[in-house]
Design a protein around this nucleic acid. Structure first.
Lengths: 240, 240
DNA sequence: ACACAAGAACATGTATCCTAGATGAAAGCC
DNA sequence: GGCTTTCATCTAGGATACATGTTCTTGTGT
């Protein structure tokens, strides 16, 4: 059996990265149709690697390919957001606990560095940079948790979480300060020897992002309903 | 966006099921090479759906495709087994807790039914049937946990867990009785209103399977070393 | 006897072609 | 006018042909 390390990633894998990037950067909308032909033409390759890329993204839940119909960017329902956040929370709480047990010092250093970057980004009012630093903070748990499957599971939903952030994040009042506070408390916990509240802080932190997303989603749905031709017609005709 | 429910599964998906079945049933060995051409010929289809199936299985960790080299059935190391079991345990403990909170009665019924089947299988000395019933027992937690992502994550590693069971399970002395005892205690817990020990029982249960697999893997490695052509040649020639 | 290099054999990667199913609009019927 | 049917068109599914990289073999030179 070959070593399988450091092999050139296939064209399909690279395409998947680019398409994922496009989704996360909000270059394409949630629920939007992605034609294999169009993607192939856009990237200047044949459909075969495009299909491979879309299948990959499908397993990550970023797109859903419907046989004979089309491929569509995922479009979360409110229940999806609730469950995804619950799922993310359980992974992250476990990873944080493992990292605390197994590599407290290393994790503490990584968290502190990420926090510093977050503070710098907040000071510069650069939300994109802040988002990246925030992601780095949470990834530190997984980098140190010592369980590849757990890390992989997080990678699996990372795309969706990132997409939610960019597509739905709305800046609530006083949010950066509260967020920074939570993160700072976690760094402090990792500097000590006991972490009783770690799970609670993390869970509450993620729960807040959940409420944020749901609020934004509802706003989106209202806007979509307002723009829906049939609804507009009904309103215009005064039909309730 | 179409409804995407109840669509005919693609040929690739069906092939993936069959190949996974072959791996789980130990029709092919761990680490064995799977040629796309050979599979295509065996199933009477072209390579395209075979490739799709293998990519699917790759995301489930059942095979690893090495660019330009080949596709190989996964072959766990001891560390893989440790991490996989730790991962499985965390998913299952969480699912069990959620099921307890959200659908105690339904879960209790499902667990009791599965336990009954396990007892019947044990009485009949049908280990294959026992294995299926055991899997059904654990799946009941996920069916009732109310979080699709958690369920999906378990599905993701279910293939590997099943493969480990069939490829590596060795029957330790007094194992069926102890296993049945653990499961019976869990059923009892779900009949009550508090489940303090649930996590501990589950975790210990899974930890025991882990030790079982590791022991079997070490035996396999010893056997493989003994069967290694070079080693055999050296032995035959009396070269030490 | 050994090391090494060239090449055959075989693996997957990619492109292209053809087919079948789904969708939506336009035409025809009631 | 509203409803149904039909057909053009676009989608993905699958087959095949060719390109390219890997690996093992084999033969040669030392």
């Amino acid at each position: 059996m070959p070593d399988q390390t450091k092999r050139a990633p296939s064209l399909g894998a690279r395409l998947a990265d680019r398409i994922r990037g496009a989704i996360i950067s909000a270059d394409v909308d949630l629920g939007e149709a992605l034609s294999e032909d169009a993607l192939a033409a856009a990237f200047g390759v044949s459909r075969t690697p495009v299909r491979e890329a879309l299948r990959l993204l499908q397993t990550q839940g970023l797109v859903s390919v419907v046989p004979k119909s089309g491929t569509f960017v995922f479009s979360p329902s409110e229940a999806d957001i609730v469950e995804l956040c619950e799922y993310r929370s359980l992974l992250e709480v476990k990873a944080a606990c493992l990292a605390f047990e197994r590599a407290r010092a290393e994790t503490h250093a990584a968290l502190a560095a990420a926090l510093e970057e977050m503070q710098a980004a907040a000071a510069a009012d650069d939300m994109k940079r802040y988002g990246r630093a925030d992601m780095g903070f949470h990834l530190a748990f997984f980098a140190q948790c010592g369980n590849r499957y757990l890390t992989q599971a997080y990678d699996m939903c990372l795309g969706r979480v990132s997409a939610l952030r960019t597509h739905l994040a709305v800046l609530s009042q006083g949010e950066p300060a509260r967020s920074l506070g939570d993160h700072a408390r976690m760094v402090t916990l990792f500097g000590g020897t006991a972490a009783e509240d770690l799970a609670e802080i993390l869970d509450r932190h993620i729960r807040r992002t959940r409420e944020n997303y749901i609020e934004a989603l509802q706003g989106r749905l209202r806007a979509a309903a307002a723009a829906d031709p049939r609804a507009r017609l009904r309103r215009k005709l005064g039909v309730g």
